[in-house]
Design a binder for these strands. Structure first.
Lengths: 160, 160
DNA sequence: GGTGAAAAGCTTCGTGT
DNA sequence: ACACGAAGCTTTTCACC
């Protein structure tokens, strides 16, 4: 993955397409003060450099009938490689798990973020899915009462 | 926000554009087995119903020089409205905070996900930013050792 | 990096089933 | 509610300055 130098214009391009990927190259060029050709060239280079990953559509969690978000801290009985690998494979197969990270600095091994339609599903998820995985020792759940921030835009200030 | 009924085709449309929003209406129509006109109409209706939120570009965290992800549990001295409101306003102003939720079921009040370039920034963030907020009583940090799952696609299985 | 032209592709109608 | 087809527009992509 080649590291390319990002100047002020690159950062403005990234800021804009992070916020709205439906913008046309024509409009993007105008916004960043460039003509369309070099603007398109920069975007292509940012893709080739691996800085631009992909374009997605974000749906509305509540409108889709998924009002509940929980954060789950999972501890395993031990950190044997097989236990970890199996746990992670199972987790990857649960599409309600939006995020999962192996963490340190806590007594838990993994932190998960999970979305769900209702409390009945919550019980099902914990008992029939999470707890069925081999090596799961303890589960601690925190319910999200209110989402204060949820961003997909990475900060760019550190590049200046 | 009107609730509309989602049939099989709507779900296939949502699944596809969640994965890749750069697809044209022509290709999308073919994928879901529709001609372009009704496909475009459905997408428009999904937008008007508030189910489709927006289109964004996802950047690569590591390529951008932000290899560190931490999860922070913050406890406040009390839950007075002013303390909460001020905390949330400050947090919203930190663009390295990717996620923040008011939570229950834990001894902490808030859970944050924060990305950063290095350990020096970590110290800066904790001491000069988080700890400066009025009413912050304690901070517990967990470092992400490995990202196992990170999705923006919401599950659709519960709609069937 | 800017400009302009050409070509390709897409979306949006109207019409018919 | 969907399919088809044509019209009109936007966008991308060159070659050249």
């Amino acid at each position: 993955m080649p590291t390319i130098k990002l100047d002020r214009i690159d950062r403005r391009i990234l800021a804009e397409i992070q916020r709205d990927s439906s913008i046309s190259n024509l409009d993007l060029a105008e916004k960043v003060g460039l003509s369309p050709s070099p603007c398109a060239r920069r975007v292509r280079q940012l893709q080739e450099a691996g800085i631009i990953d992909r374009q997605v559509t974000l749906l509305d969690q509540e409108a889709l009938g998924l009002p509940l978000t929980i954060y789950v801290q999972v501890s395993l009985t031990n950190q044997a490689t097989g236990i970890l690998e199996n746990f992670e494979r199972q987790i990857r197969g649960f599409d309600e798990v939006m995020e999962c990270a192996l963490i340190t600095g806590s007594d838990a091994d993994y932190l998960l973020k999970v979305v769900m339609p209702d409390m009945a599903y919550y019980e099902h998820f914990l008992l029939k899915k999470l707890n069925q995985i081999d090596g799961v020792a303890s589960i601690r759940t925190s319910f999200s009462l209110r989402r204060v921030v949820l961003r997909t835009e990475l900060p760019l200030g550190h590049l200046q």
